[in-house]
Amino acid sequence: MSARLRWLLVGLVLLVIAVPLAILFLRTHERVTEVERLPPQGEASYNPLYVLGQALRADGLTVQSRPRLDLTRMPLAPGDTVVLLQDSAEVPAPAVTALMAWVARGGHLIVRTPPIGKDDARNGPLLDALGVDSEGQESDCQPFHVRDDPQHVEFCNGRRFAVAPPTGITLERGWGDEESRVFARLRHGHGRIDVLADMAFMHGKGRPNPAVPPNAANAIIDGLHDKAHRDLTRYVLAPNHGKGTMWLVYASRPPSLWNRVFYLGWPVWAPLLLALLGWLWQRAQRLGSELPSPPAERRSLLEHIRASGEHLLRFGKAPLLYDAVRRAFLARLRRRSPTAAALAGEARVHAIATLLQWSHARVQTALTPPAAHDVAGLRDRIRLLIQMRNLL
C-alpha cells in the first residue's frame, strides 16, 4: 500500500468520525451569553467616591480626589467644593481655621458627623466651630419623599446632630427635628457649609437588588445606583456646581504592597514556599523526636579515690591508706609548724598536742598505726588525722 493511499484512508476514517460528533454537538448545545460583574479594580476598590468623581467628570467638571485632607496640596479657590468623607473629628484646629476662611470667600464645604460607635464622646474642632453637637446622638431613619417609592428613607446609619450656629454663621436650611437633624446648610460669609449625618448615598459601591435578576440594568441598588440618591447628591452639590473644582476627600488609603503581594501574588509565592519547604525537608539530616544523649563516661576523681581505697581495704592493704593520710598530715605540719615537725617520738606528740590543744592520748592514738585487719581502728585514726590536718 502506497503512502498516498494510506493517508487517504486515515482521512476518510477521521471524516466519518468527526462529522457525526459535530452534528451531535450542535444539536445538544446552545450558545448562551452571560454577563459577569467583576469586583472593582484599581482606585474603584478603595475610593468610595470614585463613581461620583467619574460622573462629575462626565458632566464636564474639574474633579480632584485626595485620600486625606491636606490643604498644603489643595489650592482651594472661591467657588470650589470640598466633599469631606473623612471623619470631621480628625481635622486639626489649624485646618479648621483655614477651611472657615476659605468658605467665607465663597467655598462650599460638605462634612459629616463622626460615625456611630467610633467615638461617642467627641465632636472635633470643625463641628465645634460650626455649633454642631453630635454627642450622645443616635441613628434614626429619616423619611425621604420619592414619587415611585413612598417608603423611601435615608440616613439610617448616620449620627444625628443638633445645630446652634455661632455668631457669623446662620442656618439656611435643615432637615429633621430641631434637636435631631440629619442635614443642615449653614451660611458663612459668601459660602456654605453642609453638615450631613451620613454620606452613604454618595458612595459608588451598591448592593444587589433581590427583586430583579442579577444581570438586569438595576441589579445593583443603593449608593449612586439609586435614582433618589442621585437626586439628593445633585441637591447637596448644587451651591457651587459648575463654578470651580470639586475636591473629593475619600478618607481611604490604597491597599499596601504587602496586601497586594499576599492576595494577588499567591500564584507566585505559594509554589515558591512549597519548593523552599521541600528543599528544607530534603536537606534535613533527621526528622522526628529528639533522641536522648548517650551516657557520658564517669571520670570523677573522688570516685577513683573511693574505688582505690575500697580495693586496698578489701585485699588487706589498710596500712597503706593510713600511711597516705599520715603523710598528708605531716606535710602540712612541716609547712605550718616546722619546729614540731622536726621533733620525733614523744616530743613530737607533746608539741602537736600543745599546738592543737588536744589531749596527749588522743594525738598519740592518731599517730599510732592500726592493726592490719582493724577496720574500725583504721577509720578512727584516719578521722583524727583529717581533723588534726584541718586544724593546722
Rank of each mutant, 00 (worst) to 15 (best):
L196W: 04
L232I: 06
P267W: 09
R234V: 05
P150H: 05
T368L: 02
V35K: 09
M246E: 14
R4W: 11
T233A: 15
R314D: 05
W266K: 10
L248K: 03
Q387Y: 07
L56Y: 05
Q54G: 06
R160M: 09
W358V: 06
A129T: 06
K243C: 01
K205Q: 12
A89G: 06
M246K: 04
V16G: 11
R6A: 13
A366Q: 00
S289Q: 14
R260M: 11
S65Y: 06
L287Q: 10
R298Q: 15
V32P: 15
V10G: 11
H360G: 05
I17Y: 10
D119W: 01
F155E: 02
L391E: 10
G79P: 01
G174F: 02
G309V: 14
P319L: 05
P78V: 07
V103P: 00
A121C: 06
R73T: 10
L49D: 03
E43R: 06
L26W: 08
A58F: 11
R27G: 09
A238R: 13
R207W: 01
Y250R: 02
K243F: 03
T339P: 03
W175H: 12
W269F: 13
L257E: 08
R283K: 14
L277I: 12
A77Q: 15
P294M: 12
V16T: 09
D323F: 10
L384G: 00
P92G: 10
A197P: 10
R314M: 03
W102F: 08
P67K: 04
P125H: 09
L391Y: 07
P295D: 10
V146P: 01
G168V: 11
V51M: 11
L257S: 07
S65I: 02
R27V: 09
L9M: 09
R306Q: 15
G124D: 09
E135F: 00
L333G: 00
G345P: 04
A89K: 04
L171M: 13
D380N: 07
G265I: 00
L287Y: 09
H203K: 07
W175Y: 14
L333N: 01
L274C: 07
Y50K: 09
S308Y: 07
N218A: 14
P369L: 08
D231G: 12
I193R: 03
G53P: 02
Q387K: 08
G377Y: 01
K243Q: 15
L272W: 11
R260I: 04
Q151R: 12
G136A: 12
L343I: 04
A270M: 10
L8Y: 04
A371T: 02
V261C: 08
W102C: 01
T72L: 10
V19E: 14
L312I: 03
A318C: 05
R389E: 12
V146G: 03
R187W: 01
L24A: 15
V13M: 15
D59L: 10
I17Q: 14
L85A: 14
P254H: 08
L126S: 06
P75C: 05
S2M: 02
Q387N: 13
Q64E: 14
M199A: 08
R383D: 04
P165A: 02
A3I: 07
L312R: 13
T167Y: 04
R332A: 01
L69P: 00
L333S: 01
S45I: 03
G136L: 05
G11P: 03
L392I: 06
S308F: 04
P78H: 05
Q137I: 00
V249E: 05
L291N: 07
L264R: 08
V51R: 13
S359G: 13
A324H: 08
R326F: 10
I110T: 05
